[in-house]
Structures are given as C-alpha cells and as structure tokens.
Design a protein around this nucleic acid. Structure first.
Length: 271
DNA sequence: ACCCTCCTGTCA
DNA sequence: TGACAGGAGGGT
C-alpha cells in the first residue's frame, strides 16, 4: 500500500492529531516486533510526526532534560496502517501488532501481512533515508541526471531503488513512466536530457497531486482516520491492463519487471 | 538480472 | 487451488 503520498498523508494527520502528546507506553503485541523495543520510548514526548522516505517517524524528546532524543520509526511495508484513536474512544487492540498509548488517546498499528517494522533510534543519521527526497530542492535536473548516469537498470525498476530516490513504489513508478512518456524498460542511464527533464517533472507532478488527494487506495489503504485515498480515479495505467489508454485508446499492457507488475501504454511510451 | 523469503487475504 | 498484492532484504 503505502508509497510516499500515502505515508505523507498518515504522517501529516498524526502530526496534527498527536504532536505534543506524551507516550505512556509502547505496547508491542506481535513477537516479531520484539527486537524493536530494546530502547524505551515510554514517557517521551512527541515533538512531531514526519515522513522520512517511506517511514513514519515520531520525533521524541526525553522526559528528563539530560537524556537524549529518540526516533520511533514505523515502516508500513505492504499492509501496515496507523490509526489514531482519540481520547475517550475505546482502543480495540485485538487486531493490532502494536499500540502507542498516549496521555490522551493512542495510535494502533495494524498490519495484516506483518511485513511492517518498528525501530527506535538515538541518532537521527540512522533514520535519514539514503536516497534523495524527490520533492526536495535537491532533486534538480542535474542531480537526477547524476543519479541515473550509467545505470543499466530498466527505468521503472530504477525508480523503485530507495538508495537513489526515496518514496516511489510500484503504483507511482508506472504512473511516472507514463506521465514522462518513457517506456519502463528503457535503461535508466540512457535517457536523453529532454527525457530526464520530463521525468523530473512527472515525478514531482504525480507525487504532489497524489498527496493532495491523500494517496491511492488500491485495495486496503486507509489513512489514520480510516479513510481511503482519493487518487485512485486519477491512475492512468496502474492496474488497467487491457483497458484503453486515457490519452490514445491503445490497450494498456502489463509486463513483469524484477518480479513486479508494470503497466504502460505501448503507444504513448514507445520503446 | 534472476530467485526466494517474510505473511495473510482475496479473487479468478 | 493458484496467482497475486502497495515493500524490501537476502542470496546466487
């Protein structure tokens, strides 16, 4: 489910709802998460909730001034959800892998496939993603060209590599290739300057629009308020195999790249 | 570049 | 019953 726009949506909503709250206790219910809890976050105050790459990061300040700040990092992977439960509402933890109990209300971590992870860190450097944030000023045409240089990897697969750009996943990678008019199998390092400019524009335009619509719900994404993402109706190619291209009516094709589905229009994205 | 694995649920 | 699903790490 969650790629950059979905994670951004959840982080913004949680920040608005619980910044300033104190964590009473982080309850790890799924034994798979046991390793996360070696550092405690109990009694820490939530200064802010932000997106780092695809992670939702709770920036924490310690209860006593002498001790050091901590970062509680949640990676939702495929099916993770963070649900804000306001004070006074009963927290149904039966399907939760973890519960963040706050001084007022709390947050449930639900995650059907249990791929999601929780980590607690004491230095921010360990939390910062390796790749470039695609919506930051860092992503100039020149920087993108540098990142792409010499890579033989097919463009769509390249877009999923989190040590280059962070935050893109399977849905938006296909959508971005379509918006840029580039075939997903083109070697990333062999794009023309004009194509690189189109690619950068597409990355920013699609992500910004998707954030504006609170992400994409394909099957089960829900934000922290339990609502679905509104970007689904804007998808041009993802999950539309056989359906007519919205631009030229050619049937959308589906191929497999790096064991994952890719969707594209063979007319709008010539080889 | 290919393979598999971690899990569970849903759909053809 | 098998294919597939928004992610990512590992191995060859």
């Amino acid at each position: 489910m969650p790629e950059l726009p979905e994670v951004e949506t959840v982080a913004r909503q949680l920040n608005a709802a619980i910044a300033g709250r104190r964590i009473r206790h982080l309850r790890l219910l799924d034994p798979k998460l046991r390793a996360a809890g070696r550092l405690s976050v109990d009694d820490y105050r939530i200064e802010a909730v932000r997106r780092y790459g695809k992670q939702v990061v709770f920036e924490l300040v310690p209860p006593r001034k002498r001790s050091v700040a901590r970062w509680l990092c949640v990676h939702l992977r495929m099916t993770g959800r963070l649900i804000h439960v306001p004070a006074g509402q009963t927290m149904d933890a039966t399907k939760a892998r973890a519960v963040i109990e706050l001084d007022h209300g709390g947050v449930l971590f639900r995650d059907t496939r249990r791929f999601g992870t929780i980590g607690i860190h004491e230095d921010q450097a360990a939390v910062l993603p390796a790749g470039v944030e695609p919506l930051s000023n860092e992503l100039t045409v020149a920087r993108l060209k540098e990142l792409l240089a010499n890579s033989p990897t097919p463009l769509k697969t390249w877009l999923l590599m989190q040590d280059r750009l962070v935050g893109l996943g399977n849905i938006y990678a296909s959508e971005i290739c379509f918006a840029a008019g580039i075939h997903p199998a083109r070697p990333a390092g062999r794009l023309s300057d004009a194509e690189i400019r189109r690619l950068r524009t597409a990355i920013r335009r699609i992500l910004t629009a998707a954030i504006k619509h609170c992400g994409t719900t394909f099957s089960d994404f829900q934000d922290s308020r339990g609502e679905v993402g509104g970007y689904v109706k804007y998808l041009k190619v993802y999950h539309r195999a056989g359906e007519p291209c919205r631009r030229c009516s050619t049937p959308i094709e589906k191929i497999t790249q790096a064991q994952r589905s890719t969707y594209f229009c063979p007319t709008c994205q010539p080889d």
